[in-house]
Simulated scan of single mutants.
Amino acid sequence: MQFEVALPGGTLRFPSRPVDIADHDYLMWPFGFDLNGIRLSWASAQPVTRLQDVQGPLYVFKATGGIAPEFAFEAADIERLSAPARRDGDRLIVDAFKPSARRLLTVRAKNGRTARIMLLSDADAKRAWVGDIAGTRRMVLTDAALFTSGDTLVLRQRDKTAFRFAIWPAVTGLKGSVPLRGIGDGSSAYEARTPSGALPVIRPVKARDAEDAPPVRTVGSPPVALAPVPEAYGASAAWTFTLPPAVLDGGADTWLKIDNRGDVARLFHDDDLLDDAFWDGRRWNIALKRFAADLGKPWTLTIMPLRGDAPIYLAEGVKRPPPGEQVAALDGITLEREYEVRVALPAAPSPRGPR
């Protein structure tokens, strides 16, 4: 596949060779793109963001699936490229520039302008977080979930004590809530490790069996299922268990992971409903920090049976009970700790006003 774009000066066709675009791949490829005063004729890679450091602008692109990226420039405009290029008519095409956050393509034009390009793999692009941090637009690559609090990066991940992240533009003077160690060239990539700790095994005790669930109420045509009326929950099976307050020690939060099958699962302390969820085949995850005041007290989990004739959608591969049967099952309850690393960045210097 190639694309053709009708422009005032003629038709632009790119990439230089036909490519196969896989099912479920999506793309946004630029043409006539301004790179700091240098014209990028076209690229078979997708723009992600523009960063700025002391060396000037840095343009971040991402590869598209398994398609080999190409960057095309007008040959007459270019003085030097830091990667090999081949001539294709009036253009120079860089097609041997492999995705890597450690290597940059530097383009020097005859007009004296310079642009740098970082090409991320599709996988690295999915790990990229971009935002204004400590007064500067930055990009962070990490497998952890990331958010900011003022000039501080907050990284969180579940069940993993080893953190890795890389940040652009590179910054010195980082201060972590745990020791940080530079990796690679030490200028932008770091790793950290938080202390770990064991979590107790949860052994729920069954308090009652399920009864026959009433037919699912519906509305409209085709029928759409409605939430059960309060009286219907009396058919639910129930289990009890207690979580010690210490489950919150040693992490940012702890998650209760419930593997259940049924219609609606509900979690109670006494008569207070803590949380509930319709079953869709996935594990039910509940963050416990918000319920810290209720830890150490008996909790009750109820699961209302799912009827085989319930008119609800379940994803392919999720097994529902056959017609005439029902299911209300608890397959297990486990705990998983969420760890956190905080990284404080030095504040950006205040811009100088006009003299």
Rank of each mutant, 00 (worst) to 15 (best):
R50W: 03
E340I: 04
P321S: 02
D253P: 03
P69E: 02
A109W: 02
L267F: 10
I333G: 03
K319L: 15
P84Y: 12
D88A: 13
F163Y: 04
D309Y: 07
L58I: 11
V341L: 01
A115V: 01
I93R: 00
A101L: 09
I38G: 00
S236R: 10
K175T: 15
T152P: 05
D280N: 13
F163L: 04
A134R: 04
W279E: 00
G332C: 04
M28T: 13
V247R: 02
G281A: 12
D271Q: 13
L120T: 01
A76R: 15
R352Y: 00
F278G: 05
E79H: 12
D88Y: 12
V247Y: 01
A292K: 15
A315Q: 13
P311K: 03
L273Q: 14
S41Q: 12
K297S: 14
R108N: 09
G37R: 08
W255K: 08
L105M: 12
P200Q: 09
T254V: 12
D90T: 14
E231A: 12
E325I: 06
D95M: 01
I303L: 11
K98E: 15
K257C: 09
Y233M: 09
L153F: 02
F163I: 03
K175G: 05
S236N: 11
Y190L: 02
P204L: 09
A115I: 00
P69G: 01
A198Q: 09
L141F: 05
S221W: 15
T49S: 06
R156Y: 08
Q46P: 00
G66P: 06
R17E: 13
Y339K: 05
A96F: 11
S236W: 04
T334A: 08
L27N: 03
N36A: 14
V178N: 06
S350A: 15
D309C: 02
A76G: 05
V216D: 04
A6F: 10
K206Y: 12
Y190P: 03
R91W: 06
T302C: 08
G250M: 07
S221P: 04
E211T: 10
A109Q: 05
D88C: 11
D276A: 11
S221C: 07
A6G: 11
E79Q: 14
T114K: 09
A76H: 05
L7K: 15
F278N: 07
A109E: 03
A292F: 09
S188Y: 15
K175D: 08
P222A: 04
V229F: 09
S196T: 15
W279R: 02
R217D: 14
D122Q: 14
V60H: 01
E79M: 08
E191K: 13
G220T: 11
R108P: 04
N285Y: 11
R352S: 04
